[in-house]
């Protein structure tokens, strides 16, 4: 990675332009460590909550009448928690929060593209599912989960664990 243009030699000599400084200002040791500790704990707590929700979804699925809406809400909650986690990692661990606004914007703004990217792809996937279900009845019958149309035929088994 080293190039013959080595920036490092000259950074110290940048005193003529005091605003050009490549050093972070959070050198206050105690405050920094406290911030890192806080973030670590926060990330851990969020992860634990996520796991709890994951297990809750599992329990709901095992139950007699899975509540689709509740599962969906749980899943939405997990997504939001994940975004919160991502925010803390980027902002604190990657120090983006300490950069100046210009920098933050050049990173955050392009990420907005993901919104339409995700919506369009997922909507399209969903639309193909609908097409198949409508015009390929065999596909629908052979892949639709049992509780939608097989229920009358057999009781839903309780244990879903895989066998080794």
């Amino acid at each position: 990675m080293s190039t013959h243009f080595d920036p490092t030699k000259h950074i110290s000599s940048s005193a003529a332009y005091p605003e050009v400084s490549f050093h972070h200002h959070d050198t206050d040791d105690a405050a920094f460590k406290k911030k890192v500790r806080k973030t670590t704990i926060l990330l851990s707590v969020i992860t634990i909550i996520e796991l709890a929700i994951g297990l809750a979804i599992y329990t709901i699925h095992k139950g007699e009448n899975p509540n689709a809406l509740l599962v969906l809400m749980f899943k939405g909650a997990v997504c939001i928690l994940t975004l919160a986690k991502a925010y803390y990692i980027v902002s604190v661990f990657m120090h983006l929060g300490d950069e100046i606004r210009n920098m933050i914007m050049t990173i955050v703004v392009p990420l907005m593209l993901f919104i339409w990217f995700i919506i369009a792809f997922v909507a399209d996937g969903n639309s193909y599912k609908n097409l198949r279900n409508k015009y390929d009845k065999h596909f629908q019958e052979s892949t639709m989960p049992a509780d939608h149309h097989k229920k009358a035929e057999e009781p839903k088994p309780a244990d879903a664990g895989g066998k080794q």
Partner: peptide
């Protein structure tokens, strides 16, 4: 950033395929 788009594309493709299926395995299982 660009790597995020590589991963993003992978994960979004995964989402697209997942939404095109009637059934998807429960990760807990």
């Amino acid at each position: 950033m660009s790597d995020a788009f590589t991963f993003g594309a992978f994960l979004i493709s995964y989402g697209s395929i997942r939404f095109s299926q009637n059934f998807w395995p429960d990760p807990n299982v």
